[in-house]
Each structure stands twice: as structure tokens, then as C-alpha cells.
Amino acid sequence: MTDTSWQRLDALDHKIVSKLALDARISNRAIAAELGVTEGTIRTRIKRLQNEGLIQFTVVTDFRMAGSPNLCMLGIDADPSRVTEVAARLKMMPEINCVVLLLGRFNLLAMGLFTNIEQLNELVVEQIRSMPGIQRVETSISVHNLKYEAGVAKITRIAAID
């Protein structure tokens, strides 16, 4: 979290990122024309931002397409010596979309999208509580989402860009 990559973005990078945030599929040519630089410059800049894991282009499908799942948050406490290991194991679970190591309320916060309670219960009881070092798993279910910024995230996987 003490990444200094922010400083690696200059004024032009920031302008390009703002254009892409509004329309991820805007052509390099259109960005170039608007910013008064060459198309090649835009292409090079975007490629660098992608390679450094600062920006990523992907598809987000609507909740309805996934059967309107509920976001479930799991607050987890574990033996201090096991926290990193537990995080690594949670990360491997396809049902878990997000794993954050925390200071404060819990040692770990994990989130997943579930369409039924049985599936959530199975994951918590069979797979998480049984991990070595787990002290407590507190489940909380989102009943309504009021805000979600799809355009900001932690990019943890860098796609190979040719």
C-alpha cells in the first residue's frame, strides 16, 4: 500500500486515464486528437500503464446476468502467525472475489457473491473454519448496494499485453 506508482504517472498519463475512465473503448486516434499528441504516443502510454498494472480493461456484467447474487462479507480473525497463509488460501478460492489484510476490526476481510445461503454456509463451515489457525469468522450479508465504483480496484493480476 506504500506503492509510489502514482508518481510514475505524469500529466499526460493522467489525461489519458481520465479519457479511458469515461469510455474504455475510445480509439487511440480519438484520444490523440483530443490531447494534441500522436496516436503512437497514446498507444505506447496505454501499453506501459497496462504492463505496470496501473490500468486494465475488462468486462463487467450486470448482477442480473449472474442470478442477482448477494455480496457477503466475512470478517476473519486468525492466529497472527497464520494470517498471511490464510490470506493466500482464501485468494485461491474461486467463490471469493476480494481478500484484504486488515489492522483493526478483523485480521482479514473476504468478500464473495452468493446466490444461495447454503453455498455460503458450506464455504464458511467446511472450507474456512476448518483452516488451521482460524479463530473466528463473522458473516454479514449485503441486502442493498447503494454505490459501487467499478473503475477503481487493486490490480493483482497483470495480463500479458502484446
Partner: peptide
Amino acid sequence: AVDIAKYEFNVAP
């Protein structure tokens, strides 16, 4: 947060 190990939401409202 001291580290974000995973953050992959490809489904959203």
C-alpha cells in the same frame, strides 16, 4: 488495509 491480496469483481450493479 495493509494488503489487498485479491480484488476481482467482474460482476457489478
